[in-house]
Nucleic acid binder design. Structure first.
Lengths: 402, 402
DNA sequence: ACTATTTCGTCATGGCGGTTTACAAATTAG
DNA sequence: CTAATTTGTAAACCGCCATGACGAAATAGT
């Protein structure tokens, strides 16, 4: 069946379904799953009042979901209030699981997440993937996926799909890596390289990081800008709970927003792009650490040690980020800005100047800036969860356990 | 019933309706209306195949819509093909109409648009509204609305709602003008000042201009940035056919995107905002026309006459716009950028430098920039049409003709 | 001209989905 | 121990779309 499902862009549950009775049924199944998933164990009556259907209707929906193994009956609730206690329903800890994978420049990671959102298995492999061929790298990924799948199958779980986060631009087809400079990949169709028996989604790691923040973040606002800097500087734009992808899938390229129009030239053809001031390479150079193969982690260490050059470099990067974000905030009026990925670790030294710059340039209250607690785990978790969301969004489309 | 309807943000027809049979019916009514409205006269069978329902189902839907006066039967189609010819259905030229109003700094305008999208009546009043009290201005608007309504009532039309475009920031409640510098209005609730018997929507004129482009524009893409400059420089961000409003309703403030971070100070608290380079006042000053009460029209005249200072001023404004738009395009990856409002008239002198700047700073093909043919009519038409869209989006909610 | 074919619109029937109503079960309040 | 409250389910009902059959109105072929 490999129903197209979601393409990692759920959040508007099943709007594609036809407006027929069957479509209605499917949407209502989805609403039950979402409600139970989001608000913990709930009785049928509680679900009914939340989604606006009658108890009787919810009963039949729940029966169907229990029969397909997506929901579980936990037994009677603790009374507390007057009246017959309900029977608590929870999302099943067995059944379909989402497989997430991350292809980083120096590591590969795969994990499995069940419908409850728990990570049930993971596998990591350190390797310098710069300039390795896509074939080699995907072979390793396939290997890790196999390990993880074998591990969860012992626990009554089976893979419902695979989502892969890559450090680069991905076409809107959700399969093709258009350009991944740090890997040296161009127009690479991962659909032909990865296991064909699993529904596949490929997306930018910044996008998956943003989705992770949307689904798992503490503040978890509905409209925000998630900024991360692994390769270049990417932003995930979340509007009304949906990820903004852009016509070609290239939205969120914060790294090439002009900060000083007469600044140093950039590979993109422009001048004074944000990346020239706050990109990994630029900051390392400004901090005097460009020589060795140093990476972001080193910056945090040196800054913590109080090294003045490093602190100044990060301060300046914060200013540049503040300028670029002022533009973005004026354009999008988000609820907040979240710093994720490598930027989260550098936040203590970036935030003061960043916040100051943003506040200075804004009339009225400035847009709040917070730091993601997911850190570098974001993209991997977001990928795995996107598969899970796909199941919640259309439970009826889940293929049989076999 | 004054159902909340739409708040001028339709496009995702009726997603608010409950997933029950009645909601399904209402959504299907809406789909029939949209289809007939968008694709001209159509037979029941043609509608059925387009929206994926059976002919029988569409028949009952159409019957209901004809009974409520929203659809009309035009009679048998010209045969042409084999088989019995269908009976052409069209949106009714009588019935509910949308009333749009525009409050400009130097004029008021009101118009009525029928379900077919035709302008059926209009009324304009020239008046300098700077620093007139909201009470006085809205009294005039109410007067014009009354004129227009009287005019259309003779033709079997009746007003289904009023939408007002204002030159300023509007809160998300769709009634309150938070800040309209050129009018001198602050936190003004128009809901208490305008006729209470009509469902009211208030929005930024840039937003309505963008919606007009979406609904009436030639290219009519689904994802674009509509830039206009009446007061300040505003942009309407349209994503996936929906207007992006932002958390507080302040999205699209392109005028305060930093262009040169160390540039001249701006009233917003920032420095080097786009408005300091491409805003009306800035351009007039650079063109040496600041002294008199000159406005945008004068610029176009002088530029057409070949006046060098004016041309240089517009060239420079184009460069600044190009820089700001580079940031926006990188962030949003729109299908295109559309210049509207006063900018449309100045396009011949702005476009060359704007396009060059955008192309220079973009890797790969640059985002196309086009000029709206709606010009200064955009906001008014967008407002009126937003009411019409509201009717198409939920035909069942239309109150009785009385 | 006449028949076969195609397509349109409608009607009767049926299935499906949620609602309504009623009721037994399980708890608290008094 | 009774009254009140809440839960979950079953039976009857209603609304909505699908199905299948039909007459109507056009074309295509002989």
């Amino acid at each position: 069946m490999t129903a197209p499902l979601h393409e990692a862009r759920p959040a508007a549950p099943g709007r594609a379904l036809p407006d027929t009775q069957q479509g209605m049924r499917r949407r209502n199944l989805a609403r039950v799953m979402h409600t139970v998933s989001a608000e913990g164990p709930l009785s049928r009556a509680a679900v009914a009042s939340r989604i606006g259907l009658t108890r009787a209707a919810v009963s039949t929906l729940v029966d169907e979901l229990i029969r397909s193994g997506l929901l579980e009956e936990l037994g009677p609730e603790r009374p507390g209030r007057v009246g017959r206690p309900g029977s608590a329903l929870a999302v099943s800890g067995r059944g379909p699981a989402g497989i997430g994978a991350e292809i980083g420049v120096d590591h590969l990671a795969v994990c499995a997440v069940d419908l409850r959102g728990q990570v049930r298995a993971r596998a990591v492999r350190q390797a310098d993937n710069r300039d390795r061929s896509p074939e080699d790298v995907t072979a390793d990924v396939t290997d890790l996926v196999r390990q993880v799948v074998a591990e969860i199958e012992g626990e009554g779980l089976w893979p419902a799909g695979l989502a892969v986060a890559v450090p680069g631009l991905v076409a809107r087809d959700g399969r093709t890596v258009v350009h991944a400079p740090n890997l040296g990949w161009h127009d690479t169709d991962l659909g032909t390289l990865l296991p064909a028996h699993l529904p596949l989604t490929v997306d930018n790691e910044a996008n998956f990081g943003g989705l992770a923040e949307l689904w798992l973040g503490e503040a978890a606002p509905h409209d925000f800008l998630h900024v991360s800097a692994e390769i270049g500087i990417g932003a995930a734009v979340v509007v009304d709970g949906r990820l903004l992808r852009g016509t070609r899938g290239f939205a969120g390229e914060l790294g090439h927003v002009p900060v000083r129009p007469d600044g140093p030239p950039c590979a993109c053809g422009g001048q004074g792009c944000l990346e020239q001031y706050a990109g990994e390479e630029a900051v390392l150079r400004a901090a005097g650490l460009a020589s060795a193969g140093n990476r972001v982690e080193v910056l945090a260490d040196r800054a913590a040690e109080g090294e003045e050059t490093v602190r100044r470099a990060l301060h300046d990067a914060g200013v540049a980020l503040g300028i670029a974000l002022t533009g973005a905030v004026n354009l999008l009026d988000p609820e907040m800005v979240v710093l994720g990925g490598a930027l989260a670790g550098l936040a203590p030294w970036l935030l003061p100047s960043l916040r100051a710059e943003l506040a200075r340039r804004t009339a009225g209250p400035a847009c709040p800036v917070s730091v993601s607690r997911l850190g570098s785990e974001g993209p991997l978790l977001g990928a795995a969860h996107s598969v899970v969301r796909g199941v919640l969004d259309d439970p009826a489309a889940v293929p049989a356990p076999v």
